[in-house]
Simulated assay, not measured.
Amino acid sequence: MTEASNARFNTEALSWDTNPDVQRATALAHTAYLARLPSDPAILSTYDVLDLGCGTGLLSLALAPAVRSVTAVDPAEGMIDALRTKLSSQAQEEEEGKEPIRNVLPVCALLQDPDDPLLATDPVTNSPRPNRRFDLAVSHLVLHHVPDLRSFFRTVHGCLAPGGRLMVTDFENFGPDARKFHPESKMDGVERHGLRRDEMQALLEEVGFVDVSVETAFELEKKVETEPGSGVMGPTVVFPFLICQGRKAG
């Protein structure tokens, strides 16, 4: 991500979870992921997951109860601080009889190397595991902020264990209206107005993923500006979201 993206997300971190569009999109993405992952809890509970661009951890925390561990990575310190606060404030919930989440590790980093030592800590044992690899990599509403998708996916491919899976979700570039997903005041750090199906299919195959598929995962109805730059939210547009999947051979 760019410095513009980081600056924006650091500023918005404290209010991020109050955005109903963020909450709805994350819930829909979570449902889409679970529908495509093993339904047998005994299998899914062995998965070590890498969540790239995790933000405040909405998706990480939703996935955590079903998997072995989640390493939640984001370059915006404000977002990671918000996730750390959530994890550290579970004492009260534990007193109320709720099971605390202990298998999520927040990492503030712009990941560019699969062997980054920040990924080496096992969230469950809190012990180092050099050259650690993951069973599943996810990323939600992040790709439209990534300048170089080819480099990003090469890094993700390197982070996966043989047979590991990739699942990423973002809105589709379905035409001129796709630009309306962001108000004009929030265009800093937006690298593309959604994903193109054919480009994503070709890119994932190019970097080495097999069993690649790109399909509609869900639709999100969202209010957009009445006029670009007006700041007045009025009409709604239905934004299709793609889920792009692949597997590392082995």
Rank of each mutant, 00 (worst) to 15 (best):
P75H: 04
P75L: 07
E77V: 07
E77Y: 02
G78M: 00
I80K: 06
I80R: 00
D81K: 15
D81C: 04
R84C: 11
T85E: 05
T85C: 01
T85N: 07
K86E: 04
K86I: 11
L87N: 03
S88N: 07
S88I: 01
S88Q: 13
S89R: 10
S89M: 12
S89I: 11
A91M: 08
Q92T: 15
E94S: 08
E95K: 14
E96I: 00
E99G: 00
I101W: 03
I101F: 00
R102I: 01
R102V: 08
V104Y: 08
P106D: 02
P106Y: 06
V107T: 08
V107P: 08
C108R: 05
A109Q: 05
A109P: 04
A109E: 01
A109C: 09
A109R: 13
L110G: 13
L110D: 13
L111T: 05
Q112R: 15
P114T: 14
D115L: 15
D115N: 15
D115P: 08
D116K: 11
D116I: 12
P117A: 10
P117L: 03
L118G: 09
L118M: 13
L119C: 10
A120N: 15
A120R: 09
T121Q: 09
T121K: 14
D122V: 11
V124G: 02
V124H: 09
T125N: 06
S127V: 11
S127P: 00
S127Q: 15
R129D: 01
P130S: 04
P130K: 07
R132I: 12
R132H: 03
R132S: 04
R132D: 06
F134P: 07
F134H: 14
F134C: 13
D135R: 09
D135K: 10
L136G: 00
L136T: 03
A137E: 02
S139A: 15
H140N: 12
H140Q: 12
H140G: 05
V142D: 02
L143Q: 07
H145A: 10
V146T: 13
F152T: 05
F153W: 05
F153T: 12
F153E: 06
R154P: 01
T155H: 05
T155M: 08
G158H: 09
G158Q: 02
G158E: 09
G158Y: 05
G163K: 03
G163T: 12
G163S: 04
G163E: 04
G164I: 12
R165W: 00
R165Y: 00
R165G: 00
L166P: 06
V168F: 04
T169H: 02
F171K: 11
F171V: 13
F171H: 10
E172R: 07
N173K: 14
N173P: 00
G175V: 13
P176G: 10
P176R: 08
P176M: 06
D177T: 09
D177Y: 10
A178G: 13
R179E: 12
F181M: 15
F181G: 11
F181C: 09
H182P: 10
E184I: 14
